[in-house]
Amino acid sequence: MAADSAEYIKHHLTNLTFGKHPEEGWKFAENAEEIATMGFWAINVDSIAWSVGLGVVFCVLFGLAAGRATAGVPGGLQNAVEMIVEFIDDTVSGIFRHRNTLIAPMALTIFVWVFLMNLMDLVPVDWIPEAAKAAGVHHMKIVPSTDPNITLGMALAVFLLILYYSVKVKGVWGFLKELLCHPFPWYLAPVNLVLEGVTLLAKPVSLGLRLFGNLYAGEMIFILIALMYGGLVLGVFGTVLHWAWAMFHVLIITLQAFIFAVLTVVYLAQAHDVEEDH
């Protein structure tokens, strides 16, 4: 049972990875060891497929609403979409005071996209992996935000935007000055560079790892609860636990999506802020 459980958990936490095996060439990895040998040049096909698929769902839903958007009486979909848009617009205009039309739509994209990815966590953990197994696919991890590649990939995009806008607003020299002459005077530049560099790098790392950590832990608990569905008594208990955790998780997935979006806006607002001398 213990070995079975370990196998079960491991199976649920393994991505469907496509990469170059040192001996067998390009193929889907069959186990964790094969994935390890593939190194960096491999792709978690399930993560990317679900992530992009959900991104497309977002674009189609909101695109439909945008295409049909009129000033008249809104329908159900348009109403829901506009509620989210207004919520994000209010939030962003409260945090981000500079002129940049990209920020609010990007925050909307992050919020809805991350929410949809997190939402996959509420699908019972066995349904899709078992269906995939029946269809001949070894592994299928359906929650992209439990894959650090996905969360850190988004964080990297945010980081690139931070660098881009820092340089765009302050100029190369202004950005360097911020890194070298702050918080201590210029003659402590190396210390400043270390401090500011860590601060700067901590932004994307914490952004990506926070989302990953929360969702990975949540997924783990769902898997552990799913392990209980053996006997009748444990099964009933497990069902109750599953329900309770799912209810709580609704809060977590929304909150994490919102935190990711808001922190992105905050970081980009900081990138736009020109530090006054002191």
Partner: peptide
């Protein structure tokens, strides 16, 4: 950490741009 990360970064920019 694999190439997945960079693909996700690209996807992020595409979706953000679309929106």
């Amino acid at each position: 950490i694999t190439l997945t990360l960079l693909w996700q970064t690209v996807a992020f920019f595409l979706f953000a741009f679309t929106c």
